[in-house]
């Protein structure tokens, strides 16, 4: 029997390749198409597991978005509207406090895509910073159209804008959204068995709960972090109930399971209802949808 040696081109691999593409690829394509439709967007880099080829079905879609320095404030202001209307975001973006500082601002959006909840990270960086960003971050470049010119005053304004935004204290609604995003991250860690990262993010969730309690009940607090909570908060029945919730959070297991995360969400929603119900305005349908998607995941 003669040996038949087939050249790779003769093998019909296209369908197989198509079937094995990461399920996030259509979402990545859609968001990349959406963002790049603006001339203000100068660069698009994909980073994380989708760039390195190690994505699984839980992987997020992670972009660095270069924006002309001149347009960065307007683009940042428009981002929630854009992602809600055209991106399918369930909630306003969470200002990402975990992401490394690359001279810009990170946002995390929870987006429904083909019946599933997906996480889309957008790190907006001024175009003038992109060369530096590319030296620090491994990623795949989807778009590279550097602006002809960025005036120094435009860079100055963009830098000042970023700095102001990062300094601004988070509102109760933003802190509630932070919980919802962190809970999605935690479910992912738990499913992957990433116990150390789950531990770290669980701690962040507790910190967010503490921040929510302080933003609601001691917004003018002069004390840093976890200091003087009892003295400032436990002055009223509402305050004592919130501290009891916080106590329940910090005495839960160090590494949570899915039930612990769900219980934490229930606790935080009840806490919000009690201490700062305005934060729930306009979010009730989104929270219902969020929980439905989590159940379907």
């Amino acid at each position: 029997m003669p040996t038949l040696s087939l050249a790779p081109a003769e093998l019909r691999l296209a369908e197989l390749t198509e079937a094995n593409q990461p399920s996030q690829l259509p979402l990545l394509t859609r968001i990349a198409g959406l963002l790049s439709a603006s001339a203000a967007v100068t660069h698009l880099l994909v980073r994380g597991s989708l760039a390195s080829g190690t994505a699984d079905r839980l992987s997020d879609v992670d972009f660095i978005v270069g924006v002309h320095d001149r347009d960065l404030p307007a683009f940042t202001l428009a981002l929630n509207d854009l992602m809600t209307v055209a991106g399918g975001a369930l909630l306003p973006g969470w200002r990402d406090t975990i992401v490394a500082d690359l001279g810009g601002i990170g946002f995390v959006f929870l987006v429904q895509h083909e019946g599933k909840l997906q996480q889309v990270d957008l790190y907006l960086a001024p175009a003038s910073q992109i060369a530096t960003v590319r030296r620090k971050v491994a990623g795949k470049v989807l778009l590279d159209r550097p602006p002809a010119e960025v005036a120094p005053e435009q860079t100055e304004r963009a830098t000042a804008y970023v700095s102001e935004l990062l300094k601004r204290p988070k509102s109760c609604a933003e802190l509630l959204i932070e919980h919802l995003v962190l809970a999605v991250l935690l479910h992912k860690r738990i499913r992957r068995g990433q116990r150390f990262i789950a531990y770290a993010e669980w701690h962040l969730l507790h910190c967010a709960t503490k921040d929510l309690v302080k933003a609601a009940l001691a917004p003018a607090s002069r004390f840093w972090g976890w200091y003087q909570l009892r003295e400032e908060i436990a002055l009223t029945p509402i305050g004592r109930a919130c501290l009891a919730d916080l106590d329940a959070a910090i005495t839960s297991p160090a590494v949570p399971d899915a039930t612990d995360v769900e219980a934490a969400l229930d606790r935080v929603l009840a806490l919000t209802e009690r201490a700062c119900p305005d934060a729930l305005d306009g979010l009730s349908d989104a929270i219902t949808a969020y929980r439905t998607y989590l159940e379907l995941a």
Binding site: A37, A40, A78, D81
Partner: peptide, 21 residues
């Protein structure tokens, strides 16, 4: 104004949809 901002950035469809919504 939000629709104008989107349109100014080149997102005309999104600007229209924001108003339709």
């Amino acid at each position: 104004a939000a629709a104008r901002r989107l349109a100014g950035l080149g997102y005309i469809d999104a600007a229209e949809q924001l108003l339709l919504r």
